[in-house]
Write a protein that binds this DNA or RNA. Sequence first.
DNA 1: GCAAAAGTGTTGTCCTTACACCCATGC
DNA 2: GCATGGGTGTAAGGACAACACTTTTGC
Lengths: 235, 235
Amino acid sequence: MKENNKDAKQLVASYPTVPLTVDCVIFGFDDNTLKVLLIKSDLDQFHGKLSLLGDNILSNEDLDTAANRVLLMRTGMKDVYLEQVQTFSKPDRHPGGRVVTTVYASLLNIKHHSLDILDNELKWHKVTDIHTMAFDHKEILDTCYLWLQKRIQEHPLAFNLLPEKFSLRALQNVYEAILDTKLDRRNFRKKFASMGFLKDTNEFESQVTHRPGKLFLFDFAEYEKRKKNFTGIDF
Amino acid sequence: MKENNKDAKQLVASYPTVPLTVDCVIFGFDDNTLKVLLIKSDLDQFHGKLSLLGDNILSNEDLDTAANRVLLMRTGMKDVYLEQVQTFSKPDRHPGGRVVTTVYASLLNIKHHSLDILDNELKWHKVTDIHTMAFDHKEILDTCYLWLQKRIQEHPLAFNLLPEKFSLRALQNVYEAILDTKLDRRNFRKKFASMGFLKDTNEFESQVTHRPGKLFLFDFAEYEKRKKNFTGIDF
DNA sequence: GCAAAAGTGTTGTCCTTACACCCATGC
DNA sequence: GCATGGGTGTAAGGACAACACTTTTGC
């Protein structure tokens, strides 16, 4: 057994090693607009350019943990649900030499999370305003945005962006902003009504200058019960 | 500029490095059964256990290239379309110490690719027969199998598994094997007929002991023309 | 009473499902 | 002629798209 362990250790010791980082693409929603949380790059070389929230991973940390730590370090945010999207590995993607990065994305409600650390000009930016970034980060952002558009059609992510109680209009605004399209209001409402996991609070919007809309809750338990598996061939 | 480059280099030099590998999950189809290409583990510790096709990446190689190289080295196969699925990073996943692995998957026609290298008892195994594997490879295989089930419903991967000319029955067999379900034959045929990218050769099966079925081609250009983007909210 | 958005119902079309019979071939 | 799977049509139900009018509220 010790013998075997040694073999395995020798094998691993023979592998070349590479610097590995994580980058977080944090999408948020505010003012009916999809935003993304970015900093200014640390590197003189990319002076003034925007960058994702990233850092190297620590020596005994898995990638999920690293992504959460990076987010905490860079923003002060905790308890954010991150999903792994893809690993980027072009040898020349970092000017300092070879760095492989695994990218995580999340969607959250800007108002639910305060930014406690503002180093490197941490700020929310409109996604549509971003055209150039440091490293290959624009390419990564584009990949994550496509991931998000697909993901939000198949999973109830949108509710992360909203207050606990929300109007159907607010929900539709999220979809329209992320999918960059207009949806028919009546059909949208029917669709979500038929899904059966919006729970009617009997509360209403306030402070609006028009007829207040009903507020709903997302019933997570009901969603878990109803969610389906096989969807059918469609391409 | 030189100054900046130095900064970047110093930064990267300060990052801890980890051994990075790729593993390939190669699915194939033969005898109406979904199979996966596996070897016996190199390590004494996992003596007799099955393992994915993996290896460390080289120092200036991106992951896609590494995956293709590993496949070539392990099997002799070239020109296989691999897709990145996920990166696995639990610190204890390898007994020899920390190793991060990025997993690629593919689907191919067993009869189109000859295995020219058979080291480590390289063989096709029925997916349903695999219960334990070396490392965390069973978990990886399970992840890739779920990925495949979803992927084949949204992309025309199935055609990779078939000869250039195939019968509708053969196509249905692929779907039934991968999705592990029975499909209605008439509805299946109508579905694919309506998609409009199966091109009718006027040839027929031969060497069958019953009425021969028509053979079709997959019209890739037509698929590219027709494929859609926005699918609708559905979860 | 006016502006602004909430709320709602119907119809046609298309897609999906369920189901049963005849046909061509090899033996 | 029989066994085997190929090939097809139809009817019902459900989902989706398109569309317009009434209601409630704040001002």
